[in-house]
Design a protein around this nucleic acid. Structure first.
Lengths: 221, 221
DNA sequence: TCAACGGCGTAACAAATGTTACACTAAAAA
DNA sequence: TTTTTAGTGTAACATTTGTTACGCCGTTGA
């Protein structure tokens, strides 16, 4: 194993130098498995017994209903942990099927080894926690956006959570923002245009200013 | 919010009563502070330096924009941890203001003490992880529902993730399901009626059967 | 018994959003 | 240079969802 697991241990044990990571690699028992394109890496309902790291390739996850229908969920690029949050959950089952989209390599570390490593190495704990916490933070943020009813409310929420002195920068294209909001691009475009027309904000090239904070607040209800 | 697994992060302790929790307080270094109704327990942007447990009372959380507008987020009843996921996040700041709705008691355990306890007591680790994992699971599930475009798609998703042999039970009232989906009750009611009319499902008193799986699948697109 | 209430279905209409299509621009590729 | 491509705004129309109001039913409590 070479550079790719450096990435792995960088994310899981981030306060170590490369040399120290070398040592750690030797001290954590692990397995590596390879999967061909199209193979299942895990099935929904499987127990998550290992910390599972996708170290090479790309996978997709999908929900499988009891009647065999599949609902695509998301695609994951290496390097990335799979179901890391569920290793310690009460219901520690894969919530999805995991299928290789390319030839993949997957690294497994048993739960016991993870716990042992956590006890030994605070950095590993921090890395693991930070990963889960960051993911949680991201998901929470998205949930708050989704919970806003109406496109304008989402826009207002998004702007208010990042404006400084009334100025804001979307940091995304309209296309990706629409996707992030879960709405259609023309709908988002129209909503922004209307807010500009109504004198609530200015907007150009992803940047803008808030002109009427009261109107903004009303849009949140 | 799921209160069922509250909290006390020692899995050995999770089913303990308030009295038994008293003992645990003795084995981990900690502080207890009291807050009057209306006082701020934490401000958005504060560093999360402690594992913070609301052990008595009720609080509300709200986002505060840079310009002073507040967006209410959620209410939390004791006992429940506050911002537990953020203790180890890279950006370990409170994402919200926390304000006491009643007189409250709050317990603080320093990050170091938490790490020490985790190293000492695998049960504590499991409890902490399980709490975060369960919360993540809950939030992920809601996010998946929200991500479904259109009420019928949400219904289909909800049904497919819990049907057995084509039979399902909502386990909730229409009112609370509408809230869970983030839609209005009459809209949900109408959508269900239409699906019944179209021969896709049967439905009565919160229970029903899937009649046409193909039609269900089509509604997910 | 009756009144009050909450949960539910339904309908008519209003409002928001999706859909589709087209035009314009800037940047990248040919 | 010209052509292509991606990103964007806009419009007209279709569809979905929200809003409001009403009636029905079962439960609760006076």
């Amino acid at each position: 194993m070479e550079k790719r697991d450096l990435l792995f241990f960088c994310s899981m044990c981030r306060d170590k130098s490369a040399e120290e990571i070398e040592k750690i690699k030797c001290t954590i028992p692990h397995m590596v498995k390879e999967y061909k394109r199209g193979e299942h890496i895990a099935y929904q309902g499987d127990k998550v017994q290992y910390l599972i790291m996708l170290i090479k390739g790309k996978v997709k996850t999908e929900i499988v209903s009891n009647s065999g229908l599949t609902l695509p969920m998301e695609e994951v690029q290496a390097p990335y942990p799979l179901a890391a949050a569920f290793l310690f959950a009460d219901d520690n089952c894969f919530p999805v099927d995991v299928v290789a989209l390319q030839d993949c390599e997957v690294l497994y570390i048993s739960k016991d080894s993870v716990e042992a490593q956590i006890a030994k190495c605070p950095g590993f704990l921090r890395g693991f926690m930070a990963f889960n916490a960051n993911r949680m933070q991201y998901i929470s943020e998205r949930l708050k956006i989704f919970a806003q009813k109406g496109i304008k409310a989402k826009i207002v929420y998004y702007i208010l959570s990042r404006e400084q002195n009334g100025e804001f920068n979307f940091e995304r294209s309209i296309v990706s923002l629409a996707e992030y909001f879960g709405v259609e691009r023309p709908s988002l475009s129209r909503a922004i245009s209307e807010m500009v027309r109504d004198g609530i904000i200015t907007f150009q090239n992803g940047k803008g200013k808030v002109l009427d904070f009261d109107a903004m607040e009303n849009l949140l209800l």
